[in-house]
């Protein structure tokens, strides 16, 4: 073996590996979302699972974003065929119950799925704390530039997107985000509530 040549060859190959390694830290599809800070796209979608407690809506009613001004809206896109939605489901319901007393509305939007499959999925998991909306033709999903499910948007009381989360969200993060939006929205009125 000629180790000198070996070392030179390895040194020539190394930058290529470094480039690829650097590339792995980047997501080519992560075109920075223009949405946070912008006005959230309007939607008006039909309820097909009622939900419970403070978030509940009647099946067949239409929920529109415009009618929810003044509240923080947590908008979650999901599907019955989505495996990660299963892990996320409990956390979402938990956060919805914890935030029930505050001006917050949780809604789930079914993505690329049939309503029956969605109902069955929710029933299997012992219900859902918030209503599920149908999005025929994935219009709302397209407006929100959905990349996949699950994806969650937090919309502030003025209708601006405050936060976007790709992949399964967890209860702690979600309640923290909602609380900070509520605190920022009413700084003079009450300040942070010590519950």
């Amino acid at each position: 073996m000629n180790w000198k040549r070996s070392a030179v060859a390895a040194a020539v190959a190394a930058p290529f590996i470094v480039l690829l390694a650097w590339g792995l830290t980047k997501d080519p599809r992560e075109i920075p979302s223009p949405l946070p800070g912008r006005q959230a796209p309007e939607f008006a979608l039909e309820v097909f699972i009622p939900g419970e407690g403070a978030h509940a809506r009647n099946v067949g009613d239409t929920v529109s974003l415009a009618a929810l001004r003044g509240k923080v809206v947590v908008l979650n896109f999901w599907a019955s065929w989505c495996l990660e939605c299963v892990t996320e489901h409990q956390d979402l319901s938990l956060a919805a119950r914890q935030l029930a007393g505050k001006p917050v509305q949780f809604v789930g939007v079914l993505y690329n799925d049939v309503k029956d499959a969605g109902r069955q999925w929710v029933a299997q998991r012992g219900g859902e704390a918030y209503p599920a909306l149908d999005d025929p033709g994935a219009r709302a999903a397209i407006d929100y530039g959905l990349y996949g499910v699950p994806e969650t948007f937090v919309i502030d009381p003025s209708g601006k997107i405050a936060y976007k989360h790709t992949g399964p969200i967890w209860a702690g993060l979600l309640t923290a985000k909602v609380d900070s939006i509520l605190a920022a929205a009413t700084p003079a009125a009450s300040g942070p509530k010590g519950e």
Partner: peptide, 12 residues
Amino acid sequence: LIGSAVLVAGSS
């Protein structure tokens, strides 16, 4: 890549 480079260059 590095293994082959070392081996090939070393045996060249």
